[in-house]
Write a protein that binds this DNA or RNA. Structure first.
Lengths: 203, 203
DNA sequence: TGTACATCAGTGAACGCGCGTTCACTGATGTAC
DNA sequence: TGTACATCAGTGAACGCGCGTTCACTGATGTAC
């Protein structure tokens, strides 16, 4: 009896989670085509096919929804990187740097979400656990590549540096005003190669 | 007669410019203590001691005011760098990298304004001329240091890379949640040193 | 098997607020005759 | 020297809009006796 009650409750909880995910899906779809700040609760509700007020049955407020979205996206990216690592144990620094930059270049909405969170100082720290966790996972992958390349002294420091540099390239040039998308891609490719080259000589 | 008229007009124009600058001053003062998006037209007017509507006699809209502020600030930074260069012709790469990072670390409001403009894709390109010009001046300084260090092949590419990396360090770690200001400074110092070191080996 | 009640997803209108901007107006100074 | 008019800095209230969020309500489903 209690057992069956529990499973019924579990089922309900699962269904609720599924509905919650549908809302997050809709949000991510919108973030893909518009700047974060131009996507409102009403837009997300419309995209999900529900009433705006319903969102507040699933999320305490708008921030919580957006955080759920960013956390899912970072998680997915890390998973892809981990897969890449498993498939090719001899990944070079150049390769991983290029991989990371290309991933963010292709997924511009994710890149925008990420920078938004990195730069917005008004976000409460307690909400950023999962985001932080994912970043640490990414740094761990970087660590492994540095170690495989023969770096023995403080690989984590180099991972931090590489991570920061690649972000810097994207942030500084990704939306450079008055440049064509193809020119920008070229420029970012060149700079990524330069950085990858520099870091390859670390030992 | 016409001559005197002209000088009178000039005087008036000067006075108008002076008043305009007072408004920009007030805006910069506010940006120093609060995120950009939390500073409104009413706040700026209050800080400048005038009515909000008066702002629209001096600026077409809010964006124009903010752009005036950012342009003045970038101009000032470049000037300081140029002075540093003139005083010490043998500036090392390490030195200039550290200088740049420290400057942005100290002037956090300026750093926030800069990232806001680099990342906000909604700003019209035609408004960014002066900003772009200042950045190019900064890159020119970087060029000189690279050339002085013996780089003969495409110093501008390395300048772009260095510029991006240093921005990346600041953006990624400047407001890292849950870290003390002093820890952050330490981390940024370490990473800047690593980057400076890497770029010193370019030739 | 039927009835009364509880639970909960979902709705659409409304609240309340803050924001950029405009409007009608004032008051001082300069100009023309 | 005085009068009529133009110019322009400056004001404070108001407009209009969009936003996050709440409220009172509905309707379907499950539960207890």
């Amino acid at each position: 009896m209690t057992e069956e009650n529990r499973t019924l409750q579990d089922l309900k909880a699962e269904e609720k989670l599924a509905r919650k995910n549908l809302i997050v899906d809709a949000a991510i779809r919108l973030f893909s085509s518009r700047p974060l700040k131009e996507v409102g609760v009403r837009d997300i509700a419309k995209e999900a096919g529900i009433s705006p007020s319903l969102i507040y049955r699933y999320f305490a407020d708008q921030d919580e929804l957006i955080l759920e979205a960013i956390n899912r996206e970072t998680g997915e990216m890390i998973q892809q990187f981990q897969k890449k690592m498993d498939n090719n144990k001899n990944l070079t620094l150049q390769a991983i740097a290029t991989e990371y930059v290309y991933y963010l270049f292709r997924n511009d909405h994710f890149f925008r979400m990420m920078t938004h969170f990195i730069l917005d100082s008004t976000i409460k720290a307690e909400h950023l656990h999962r985001f932080d966790e994912n970043i640490r996972n990414l740094l761990e992958i970087f660590d492994k590549v540095f170690i495989a390349a023969g770096v023995t002294d403080k690989p984590r420091t180099y991972s931090h540096a590489l991570f920061a540099c690649l972000n810097g390239i994207l942030i500084t040039y990704r939306h450079y005003p008055g440049r064509e998308e193809i020119e920008i891609k070229k420029q970012i490719e060149i700079l990524t190669k330069v950085i990858g080259e520099l870091f390859s000589h670390v030992k």
